[in-house]
Amino acid sequence: MSAAPDPLGRPPLERYLALPGFTPTVLTMVLGYRLRALREAAGISPRDASKELGCSEAKISRLERGESPLREHDIDTMLRMYGAQHELETVCELARRAKEPGWWERYGSAVIPKWFDKFVGLQEGSKLIRTFEVQLVPGLLQTPEYAYAVAEGGFQATAEEVRAKVEMRLRRQELLRRAEAPMLWAVLDWPVLQRPVGGREVMLGQIQHLITMSRLPNIKIQVLRPDCVAIGSPVTLLRFEEFGLPDVVYLEHPTGAIYLDKPEETGRYRLMLDDLAVMALSPAETRKELRRVARDLG
């Protein structure tokens, strides 16, 4: 396999064949952005590429944004067009790996809807997770008891679906303790600590768990000051250090989610998260406040 350089000076794709832990979601994004870099380096417009491929410009956009799986025929056509046929073997192998199901996909749509499936895959491959939560403790920081209470309060889930939802949530949390764990930076709105999800005992256990998790080197937890008024919805920003992938902002609503990756969009949310972190109690002050809340609950 050739180790030809990337048009933008990034490491060659071959390195991803040897790197473990890359999720299908992230691999699809890596390939999409690689194809866009090759197209732009060849001076070919999306319109001309779509004509050669016999498809719409919208499909080219979806492929380059990692929103659609790549077929071997399309890969061959695009690489020939871009003068990068030497990458065919590597790209096809990574495309095959990108089609392998992630561990979370075995739970099915009743437990993990399609619009959330992508988020889990992106989160698994991220290096930094920044999140602001206004209603609940973030899923990555929930105790099993708290997670059960949240799942039971959802949309008419069966007992088996509740069990599976909690099991999957706890499995997702394992990424925070792996060897190369991502950094999690969570800002919680003040009412999150006051809302007794699952009752007093469950909430006490959850607060104690937040104190424990806040001491890990890759986790930073902050709580907004009581006098801060943060009007908005939950937001999560994911950052990747591999292959120059853009930040992705995840915005969830009751029946779906929105994914943003344009710099002008994600930049605004990054600044918003920066402002919230400045307004919030520091991590040390947050631990002190969590201990106070625990005493009140105990």
Rank of each mutant, 00 (worst) to 15 (best):
S2M: 04
D6G: 15
G9E: 10
P11K: 03
L13R: 10
G21I: 14
F22V: 15
P24Q: 04
T25E: 14
T25I: 08
T28N: 11
L31M: 02
Y33R: 01
R34I: 12
L35N: 13
R36M: 05
R36W: 02
A37C: 11
R39C: 07
R39V: 05
G43C: 06
I44F: 04
S50H: 05
E52C: 05
L53T: 02
L53M: 04
S56C: 09
S56K: 03
G66P: 09
S68N: 05
L70Y: 01
H73M: 10
I75E: 00
D76C: 02
R80P: 02
E89W: 07
L94V: 08
A95Q: 01
A98Y: 13
G102I: 00
D117H: 12
K118F: 12
G121K: 10
L122W: 14
L122I: 06
R130A: 10
E133L: 00
P144E: 07
E152K: 15
G154E: 15
A159E: 15
E161L: 10
E161D: 13
L170Q: 03
Q173V: 13
E174G: 05
R177L: 08
A181K: 01
A186S: 14
W190T: 11
V192C: 13
V202E: 09
Q206R: 01
L210Y: 01
M213A: 07
I219E: 01
L224D: 07
L237C: 09
L245D: 13
P246L: 14
P246M: 12
V248R: 04
Y250R: 07
L251V: 06
E252Y: 12
Y259M: 11
L260G: 00
D261P: 02
E265L: 13
Y269H: 15
M279C: 04
P283E: 08
K288G: 15
L290I: 10
L290Y: 09
V293Q: 13
V293K: 15
D296F: 00
L297K: 06
